[in-house]
Amino acid sequence: MSRGFRVGVVDDHPAIAAGVPVGLRDHLPLDGECPVASTVRGLLETAHELDVVLLDIRLQDRSAPADNVRRLVARGWPVLLFTQVRQPAVVAACLQAGAAGVVGKHEGWTTLAAAVRTVAGGEDHVNADWAAALRVLVEGRAPALAPREAQVVNLYSTGLPMKSVARRLGVGEETAKEYLARVKRKYLEAGRPVHTRSELYLRALEDGLLDPPGGV
């Protein structure tokens, strides 16, 4: 590539969003300023041609990570996940949606720059996180939950009584219980049985249905 790399950043942590372009510029030739946005919509509205988008998985607008990947890829921008999230099922969903790799925020600038080069060149950035996510895809360990089932998991696993869950969903308590029963059957079929509320909470964390404690 004769010109510099055109890199966009979607991250709602101000210090990280401001620091990434500066750090990258010391390890990678960049073409102009790096457009930075706190949401995917913001980047789509302000950026033009990009070689790579660095996308944080967890954004404060509560947008679905895989949907964010799809929107960026649909614009024709390769996506490199740049995140602290260590949830293989969430990363797997993003890879399935078209992301080309993942780099942890704990990794060094040299690693990030190399990953940008790789993805901008049309290849996947393969590392341990990528491999763990691929295993989830191959093994099919994350069951496909319907939207209502996912809502029940989100509400019930965090401690709400079933009556309150039903009220939040606008359905009867028996209907909410049936949603939960379906969820348990799907986890059983996936080889990850759920017997207690705490086990459901752990599964929800593993599969990205809940944000990790601390909002990572």
Rank of each mutant, 00 (worst) to 15 (best):
V7C: 04
V10T: 05
V10R: 02
I16D: 01
A17K: 00
R25L: 10
D26W: 02
H27Q: 04
L28V: 04
P29V: 15
C34E: 05
V40P: 01
R41G: 15
G42F: 08
T46A: 15
D51W: 07
D51L: 08
V53A: 03
L55M: 13
R58V: 03
R62W: 05
S63C: 08
R70K: 14
R71L: 15
L72F: 09
A74C: 12
R75N: 09
V79I: 02
L80K: 04
T83P: 11
Q87I: 05
V91I: 14
C94S: 09
A100D: 02
V102S: 04
G104K: 00
A113I: 04
A120E: 02
A120W: 01
A120Y: 03
G121A: 14
G122S: 10
E123C: 13
D124I: 01
N127M: 12
W130S: 00
A131L: 12
L134A: 11
G140F: 11
A146Y: 03
E149S: 06
Q151A: 09
V153M: 04
L160A: 10
P161Q: 09
M162C: 04
V165S: 08
G172W: 11
A176M: 01
K177I: 03
Y179L: 06
R182L: 11
V183Y: 01
K186D: 08
Y187D: 15
G191E: 12
P193I: 10
H195L: 13
S198P: 08
E199D: 06
E199Y: 11
G208K: 05
